[in-house]
Structure formats: structure tokens, C-alpha cells
Design a protein around this nucleic acid. Sequence first.
RNA 1: GGAGAGGUAGCCAAGCGGUUUACGGCAACAGUCUUGAAAACUGUCAGGGUUAAUAGCCCUCGCGAGUUCGAAUCUCGCCCUCUCCGCCA
Length: 418
Amino acid sequence: MIDIKYLLEQPDKVTENNTRRGKDIDVSFAVKHAKDRAESLEQVQELRTKANELSKTVSTASAEDRPAIIEQGKQIKNQIKDWEEKLAQAESLLSAELFKYPNILRGDVPTGTNGLQNEQVRVFGEPTKFSFTPKDHLELGEKLGIIDVERASKVSGARFVYLKGDAVLLEFALIQYALSELLKEKFIPVIPPHLISIDSMSSMGYLQHGGEEEIYHLKNDPMVLIGTSEQALGPMHLNEVLDEEQLPLRYAGFSPCYRREAGSYGKDTRGILRVHQFDKIEMFSFTTPERSDEEHELLLSIEERLMQGLGLPYRVMKLCSGDTGTPSARTYDIETWMPSQNMYRETHSTSNTTDFQTRRLNIRVRRKGKNECAHALNGTAFAIGRTLIAILENYQQEDGSIVVPKVLQQLIGKEKIG
RNA sequence: GGAGAGGUAGCCAAGCGGUUUACGGCAACAGUCUUGAAAACUGUCAGGGUUAAUAGCCCUCGCGAGUUCGAAUCUCGCCCUCUCCGCCA
């Protein structure tokens, strides 16, 4: 949620921001509701002052005066009730209106309407060249007996997978590799709950903006399955005031990610690029407002370091205004070369959500004058499934075997799979 | 799942319809004293809102409704924690 004060002070800036994101929102509604709210609030407060003063006189008043005072108190009470109703109404209208507002973009985010206008920041390596016709990850994985989607569809349905044998060893090696790098940067490893309350999910803003469809709900409990560990890491510090000295506070969350993938029928149906469940190591940071951009660059640099360590070719994209997600003020994606598709595909994403999530979560930084909202950032360390695809396809040999990236060789105890 | 106890500020803890602006203690911070430290003493010591304001005023005693002129205190609902029983890795 954006700052109401900012909206009232700079309505034009907010409109401009919405327009850049392709959202046509008339700010005058929110401004009006905000003003109504302020007026009702003032009335309620004044009446309460009166009521408080009056009720103090009751106990010392004489027996004759008392009934009149009590009668007067009753009247004020009714007036308060009326104004409180108006206040509640203005507040609910205002917050419903503000839910539509995306985060305020950082100044350096390029303007654009869709992914085609994303800005290429840099490229690492070159698309892998083969002296033979490369196979895709599914064909490779099935032949090696490490990816089984056929049986998974029998057991669970489409978009599920059994990872077996060396694929599992690869996953654990990737986790180990990522954690060892993240520990150097003072990340605290966390295994969060995979089920969180609907309230928590809502507080992270994932149930708004049509996000509801993407999430698995439970039938008998008011809980949902997380789509990323970020959803469980954010609410960890709900309603807390963080000391400035403990910032940046960095978590490395490891969890499965459950996604319904509604609306993506017929898209990326082959293999394990888009599945309902995959494991991921996610970076999540809380910082002071003035340090969040620096932190964002750090998260990106860690992602790149991890990929460079694996020797996979990738490019870094800065998403344009129209492609940046609602809670984000700036997002970088890392797209990794996928030989079977002859193109770069998203494997990592890192966002500075500034105070958009922390405002609703009420997570603040203790400051001398006034405490203010902390900033929150997230970034992918490894989405295991897609990283496996990239390794299998880029490191495949003509005979269908896979050379293991150097940094993982010792961790899985072999130089070659198959 | 069954039975009981309890949630008050960073922590402990009193209050159980109206001088409570939430007693008191610990911790923390600042100061006095001291060569320095400890001790002692003095002061500061929850958030949020409103505001030019660190002035006033309003709200918050787990959360939400209600009763009352007035609720931490009474009523109802919900959440959470602890103990015992059952089940269980």
C-alpha cells in the first residue's frame, strides 16, 4: 500500500506513476475519501474529549446535578456513534481505493508497456554452442532416469514431477552451494511454515490484484500453501519495530513453492519449466529506507555470482514500468540461456518493494524523531527446477550425459551424470 | 479432540466500574559523584493518530463486538500461550 500522505501531497506524481504502469486510476476518489476520513476523525476526537471531561465530573457531582450530566453524556455518545460510522465508511472506501494502487516506481525504471520494453542491463557468457543437435531437459532427464513427469501425472495430474537419483543430488548440491555463499553475506537460513493463514497471505498483498487464483486453499482450514517462502518471511516481523543496528536483516528461506498456474494452460507444458510445485531458496531483506537500493544491487550481485559460479550464460534485465509487479518499485530478472528453446528464460527475479509491503505489515525502523516503515526486498537465489533445466541443457554431451558444473562436483561426488 | 489456567508496555508484575495521566520492580539510556568502574542518587524510558509542534487532544491493557455518562476491570464471540489427558514422527 502506498503512503496516504504522499498521495495527498503529490497526487500528480501518483497519477503519473499509475499511468506509466498502464493503470488508469482517478486519484480524486482516494483524495476525497482521505479528506472525508480526516474530517470525521477530527469530529470524533473532539466529541470524545467532551465526553471524557464530562464523565469525570459525574462521580463528584451532587445527586441533583447528576441526572442532567448523564443525559448530556448520552447525547454526546450518540453523536460519537454517528461520526464513527462515517469514519469507518470513509476508511473502508479509502483502503479499497488504495488497494488498486501499485507501488511508486524508482526513478531509473524505464517506461514501457510489456516485457519487450525491458532494458537489458548486461550479458554474461554466450549462448552455448553444440557440435550436435541438443536435446531438451525432459528428453535428457527421462533417459537418465532422473525426471519422471509421466508417473507424476498419473499420481497428481499435469505439471507435477518426480525428481529422482542424481537430480535430487543436484538439488541438494545447489542448496548447499547457495547457502554457503549466502552465509558469507550474513543471511540467516530459514525453513518457514509452508502453510500460512489467509490473514498473513492477505497482509503480503497476494490475495489482491487477482492473486487469489494462483494460490492453493485448504478445504477445512483457513490456510493457504505458500507460493514462495517470501510470503512466510514477510509476516515474521508483523507489527514489530526493528532496531537500526540489526539492519540489514537478511533471511535465506528454503521451501517448496506451490502454484496453481491458473491461466497458463497450454503455456510451457513440456517438461518442468512450469510446474505446480518446486523448491526454491529465496533471499529476503529488511533495510532502512535509505539503504534499500544498495541492498537491491547486492541481491542482484549475489544472484549473478551464483550463476557465474555455475558457468551458465545469462542476461540481466531491468523490467520496464508496465512489466513490474504491483508491490515492486524496481525489479531485475535474470534470464538464463535455454538451448532447447533457443532463448533466454527467467530463472531469477529480485525486487525492491520499498515500504509497500512493510506499511501494511506495520514493520518499522526505530528512529530518533519518528519511527518509519522499513524497506523490504526479495530475490531468488535458486529456483531449483529451472536451474536444473539450465544445467541439463547447457552441460549436455552428445551421448546424453551431463557434465556437472565444477562448483557442484565435490558436493555430489561425481563429475558427470550418465 | 477433551479438561483446566492464563494473555497488562523490552521483561517481570499490581490493578478487577470513576483522583490510574496504567502502582511497582528489572533491564536500558543520560547525568551527578569518582582517576576509572561499581554502588548510591536524579532524570529519561511503548506505539499510533491529529498538529507547525518533542504543546495540547484522541486511540491502544491479546483481537473484535456489546453493556455504561464512564471499561484493563462486567457480558459475548474469536485468537494465542501454558499444564494435564488422548493421538502421534
